[in-house]
C-alpha cells in the first residue's frame, strides 16, 4: 500500500528530525511541500500567494511544534490537523465562516493516499488522453506544482505546459461528456 509506505517514510524522517538530525528534518519539510500546496490550492482556488503563505506558515508550525507529534500515530494525520488549523485560522481572520462545515470530512484527503477509488478513476480517465497532456495535468492539477515547476520537471517550456493543460482539460471534458466508461 502506497499510503502506508509514504507515511512510514515521512514518519522515519520526522523521528530522525526529533532526534536532532537536521538533514532529515529538511527532507521531511521538503517532502511536505507538494501535499501541502495541493491541499491549500484545492481549498483556496488558485490564489497562489495565499497558498504559499499558508504552506510556509504550516511548515513553521510543523517545525516549532514538533514536540506535539505522538510517534505512535500516523504522521499524515498530525500534519493534516496543523494544515487544517492554519486554513481555518486564515478564514477566521478574514471573517469568513462559510465553507468550514465541510472541512471535517476532508480529513482523509491529506493522508498520503494515492490509492482511493476516486484517484484511480482519474488515472483511468487520464490514460485516455495524450501522454504529455496527462503528465502536465498530473503535475499541475493533482500534485499542485506551479506552471514553472511542472515545466522544469517535464523538461518542456512553460507555454507548452499551459497549452497542454488547456488541451488536456478539454479532451477530458469531451471524454466525460461522451459517457466515458
Amino acid at each position: 500500500m502506497r499510503m502506508r509506505h509514504d507515511d512510514d517514510r515521512l514518519r522515519a524522517l520526522m523521528l530522525a528530525g526529533l532526534a536532532g538530525d537536521g538533514a532529515a528534518h529538511a527532507a521531511l519539510l521538503r517532502a511536505l511541500l507538494t501535499p501541502l500546496r495541493s491541499f491549500f490550492r484545492r481549498r483556496l482556488g488558485g490564489r497562489d500567494d495565499d497558498v504559499e503563505d499558508l504552506v510556509q506558515e504550516t511548515l513553521i508550525a510543523v517545525h516549532q511544534r514538533r514536540a506535539t507529534y505522538d510517534p505512535a500515530r500516523p504522521l499524515g494525520a498530525w500534519v493534516y490537523a496543523i494544515a487544517r488549523y492554519k486554513l481555518i485560522d486564515r478564514y477566521r481572520r478574514s471573517g469568513r465562516t462559510t465553507a468550514l462545515d465541510d472541512l471535517p470530512e476532508l480529513a482523509d484527503e491529506f493522508a498520503f493516499d494515492e490509492a482511493s477509488d476516486a484517484r484511480s478513476d482519474v488515472d483511468r480517465l487520464l490514460d485516455t488522453i495524450p501522454e504529455k497532456q496527462a503528465a502536465v495535468l498530473r503535475a499541475t492539477r493533482l500534485e499542485g506544482l506551479s506552471t514553472a515547476e511542472a515545466a522544469e520537471r517535464l523538461g518542456i517550456g512553460e507555454s507548452d505546459v499551459k497549452v497542454s493543460a488547456h488541451r488536456g482539460l478539454k479532451a477530458l471534458a469531451a471524454r466525460v461528456k461522451d459517457g466515458w466508461r
Binding site: L18, H25, A26, L29, E52, Q56, L59, I60
Partner: peptide, 26 residues
Amino acid sequence: MNSEDLIASLSLDIQPVPRHALRRRL
C-alpha cells in the same frame, strides 16, 4: 522568502526534542 530558503533556515540548527517534551511542558 521562498519556501526552499525557509526550509533551509528552519533546518539549520536542530535541537533534539526529548521524548516527553509535551508532558514536561504541561
